[in-house]
């Protein structure tokens, strides 16, 4: 007889990996401060949890890291967790198409989720503070390019990292059923 019969180890594994990725994103942001760039890659935290976990676990993870993201920025209003939850919801609905976890498909999914979230944030969440329309456009494009590059290069790795860590711990991680 066990004390905790129905604990889902996958949740804790993905949570641990997400915390490590969150830490790395913070370090990367600190390094890029030297050139005034803002790296925006929350999809690295949302896509793996939405692919592998149950629906409510994935949404909880998204809301939790949404609040963490918002805590490190001068943004208010709980819009960031809402955005993260909505992204998680959409990925959960689409995950059956990515059951094979091919690199191109994962890269495409992560990149498109990330860029959609970035554009939504730019339009509705981030402070505007326009010093000129051209400066604003350059700011948005520059940060989008940096974030796109990182998302395209490392998204498949971020997803497979969860699988690898779970495998090492003896847990099988597969794309879940639709909610």
């Amino acid at each position: 007889m066990t004390l905790f019969k129905n604990i889902d180890a996958r949740f804790f594994i993905v949570f641990g990996v997400n915390c490590a990725l969150f830490f790395l994103i913070g370090v990367m942001g600190d390094i890029l401060s030297g050139i005034g760039a803002y790296i925006y890659i929350p999809a690295f935290l949302i896509v793996p949890s939405s692919l592998f976990l149950k629906f409510w676990q994935a949404v909880f993870m998204a809301v939790f890291f949404g609040f963490l993201f918002e805590a490190q920025t001068p943004l208010d209003g709980a819009l960031t967790p809402v955005l993260f939850a909505a992204a998680s919801f959409i990925v959960c609905k689409l995950r059956a198409k990515f059951r094979s976890l091919d690199s191109f498909g994962i890269t495409w999914l992560t990149w498109s989720v990330n860029m959609s979230m970035y554009l939504f944030s730019v339009l509705f969440i981030f402070p505007i503070g326009i010093s000129g329309a051209w400066a604003y456009f350059f700011r948005v494009v520059f940060d989008a390019l940096i974030s796109s590059l990182v998302a395209a290069l490392f998204s498949a790795y971020a997803v497979n990292l969860n699988k690898a860590v779970a495998y090492l711990l003896g847990v099988s991680l597969n794309v879940g059923e639709d909610a």
Partner: peptide, 13 residues
């Protein structure tokens, strides 16, 4: 501890 300097906001921790 951390620098958060970009075109959107300018803050240190």
């Amino acid at each position: 501890a951390r620098r958060d300097l970009n075109a959107w906001w300018q803050q240190l921790v």
